[in-house]
């Protein structure tokens, strides 16, 4: 029997294409938008922008530290630089450059990070960063965004072009269901309650929002009504939405393609422990590196798919 999903899709596409298309549109809207890429223009889907605006696009070669510094300089000169590379090289490799030249200096730089998480797939753990959200959310001044599908990523890309300040935008490689509307308005820092529920809240981010939608239908079949909240902005976190929902449901699950340590779940736990202590279960990677495999295989092996969200929801319910 097929599941009665509250959100459905007819098409799958990678979130990086949402970024690429949003980036091109942002460039058409605002002549100050410029781009940089460290030898991954094809992978980041930045080629259309480069073709249309060659004078506003800079190939940096395989030199990410320099790319971050140049972005800070372009921002000083009044430009809105979108610096793209894989999430691994956009964070850990250049943490100090981001910290000093971008975050501490409060520069209007958009760090655009693709191929994040396990769903990068076959390239394996060297490229599957699972620590980036933690690193970025710790930086003062930094806004951290992790949209869930093509449409939301495109909307987020357009929104950050209009926001003044440093942003980390995380997206990915796999073809993924497009289940949010094309005409959505993206509000930075405003969580989106996608499905109303009363028994347990599922806070999900990135690709795992889709898994949460599937999990909600699975739980409903068993008579458990889950609320699904799409936390596309990890920082600043929408405390009101989180507390409002948990006050209603009394327990929660966090779901993210990231280490449990330092991820979205940690931020939610901090919010709950300070304001409204309630059971919270985590769906995330538990202090390990990833490995090669298909996205689906990896989400299953590392416990990040809809089935695992269902199990976590039941654990949370049992602790109420």
């Amino acid at each position: 029997m097929s599941l009665d999903l509250k959100f459905t899709y007819t098409e799958k596409k990678d979130t990086r294409s949402g970024f690429g298309d949003g980036f091109l549109e942002a460039g058409r809207k605002n002549p100050n938008v410029v781009g940089l890429c460290a030898d991954l223009i094809g992978s980041l889907k930045m080629g259309d922008f480069q073709k249309e605006f060659p004078d506003r696009f800079f190939q940096t070669g395989i030199a990410e530290a320099n790319m971050i510094g140049i972005s800070a300089g372009l921002a000083i000169g009044g430009k809105i630089p979108f610096a793209g590379t894989f999430a691994n090289f956009a964070t850990g490799r250049v943490y100090d450059q981001i910290r000093q030249s971008v975050a501490y200096s409060d520069k209007n730089v958009k760090i655009c990070a693709s191929h994040a998480g396990l769903t990068l797939g076959e390239d394996g753990a060297t490229h599957q960063i699972l620590e980036d959200l933690g690193m970025m959310k710790m930086l003062p001044h930094m806004t951290v965004i992790n949209p869930c599908d093509y449409n939301q990523t495109k909307a987020a890309t357009l929104a950050i072009a209009e926001y003044e300040g440093p942003v980390y935008l995380r997206f990915g490689r796999p073809s993924w269901p497009i289940f949010t509307p094309a005409d959505q308005k993206f509000e930075i820092g405003k969580a989106w309650k996608m499905i109303d529920g009363k028994d347990v809240t599922i806070f999900a981010t990135g690709h795992l929002v889709w898994e949460a939608v599937v999990a909600e239908a699975m739980l409903r079949e068993e008579g458990i009504y889950a609320e699904v909240i799409n936390i596309h902005t990890i920082k600043p976190l929408d405390l009101e939405a989180i507390l409002g929902s948990v006050k209603k449901t009394g327990c929660a699950v966090s779901a993210e393609e990231h280490q449990v340590n330092g991820g979205l779940g940690d931020s939610i736990a901090q919010t709950l422990s300070r304001n409204y202590p309630a059971p919270l279960e985590y769906v995330g990677v538990n202090d390990s590196f990833g490995e090669s495999g298909t996205p689906t295989q990896l989400l299953e092996k590392y416990g990040l798919n809809a089935e695992n969200i269902v199990k976590a929801a039941k654990r949370a319910l049992a602790r109420k």
Partner: peptide, 8 residues
């Protein structure tokens, strides 16, 4: 790097 960005 920063100076290069401003120069560009």
């Amino acid at each position: 790097s920063v100076a290069i960005g401003v120069a560009q």
